[in-house]
């Protein structure tokens, strides 16, 4: 199902990609037809994720050593006004971290990946006077439920392998957090989106450890 969405998303993306010569003359005709994309939009992209430990400043930050992964989903806008509207999204994503733990002579590589079903709600999205290029900014929150996970460990450069003990460390499977979203639309769509997600719920009862993610999406 996840892969089906990816294929769907990518084929639509190819069909409507800005700069694709075959469709440059078509935008006008889009105004006149009620397409499904007028109500439900598809989005897909990559995300960088990491864990955040409030008590350690020098942890593997989201930007210093991210876990790269994908995300895809659907979005719909509601309560559309001239300068603001609301948005709801349902997506599949993979969050986690790629981390290194060291002490003299030992280096442990740890990769944790958790696949989630995520509901994001942006009650307020602000936009300017509609033009050809339409930037917007939104804030909101998300809820997610872990569907599956894996922990892999490699010691001193060895190939990583499954580590169920480490996986058991992450004994919290729900998450919620806040969302900050920046979007730039070409006319009504397509557009690109940069989003920052900060988890508020610790993913382990043993340690205060929270999700952080930076998401780059195409939206159609």
């Amino acid at each position: 199902m996840i892969w089906l969405l990816i294929l769907l998303g990518s084929s639509i993306a190819r069909a409507n990609f800005p700069g694709s010569n075959s469709h440059l003359s078509e935008p006008d005709s889009l105004k006149h037809k009620k397409k499904i994309t007028d109500f439900v939009r598809f989005k897909a992209g990559v995300m960088m994720s990491s864990f955040y430990r409030p008590d350690i400043s020098s942890s593997n930050g989201i930007l210093t050593n991210p876990l790269w992964s994908w995300q895809a989903g659907i979005a719909s806008d509601f309560f559309k006004r001239k300068y603001h509207y609301s948005r709801a999204e349902l997506s599949f994503n993979t969050k986690g971290a790629k981390e290194y733990f060291t002490s003299d002579g030992v280096e442990i590589e740890s990769i944790n990946q958790f696949r989630n079903l995520q509901l994001s709600v942006l009650p307020v999205v602000l936009r300017a006077e509609p033009k050809k290029i339409n930037p917007s900014v939104g804030v909101g929150f998300y809820f997610s439920q872990r569907l599956s996970g894996s922990s892999k460990t490699g010691i001193n450069g060895e190939k990583v392998s499954e580590d169920p003990v480490s996986l058991s460390f992450f004994d919290v499977k729900q998450d919620f957090g806040i969302v900050l979203n920046l979007e730039v639309m070409y006319k009504k769509h397509p557009g690109i989106e940069i989003r920052y997600e900060a988890g508020l719920k610790s993913q382990s009862t043993l340690r205060d450890i929270k999700n952080r993610a930076l998401v780059f999406s195409f939206i159609f």
């Binding site: 350690i56 930050g61 930007l63 991210p66 030992v106 740890s110 580590d163 480490s166 058991s168 690109i192």
Partner: peptide, 28 residues
């Protein structure tokens, strides 16, 4: 914009490591 992100990401590539104690299995 895309280039900017790339550069930004590449600039942050340098690894930072955690103390061994923080490793999850050892936390157990």
């Amino acid at each position: 914009f895309l280039m900017g992100i790339w550069v930004f990401a590449a600039a942050c590539k340098k690894d930072k490591t955690l103390e061994l104690d923080e490793f999850y299995r050892f936390k157990m």
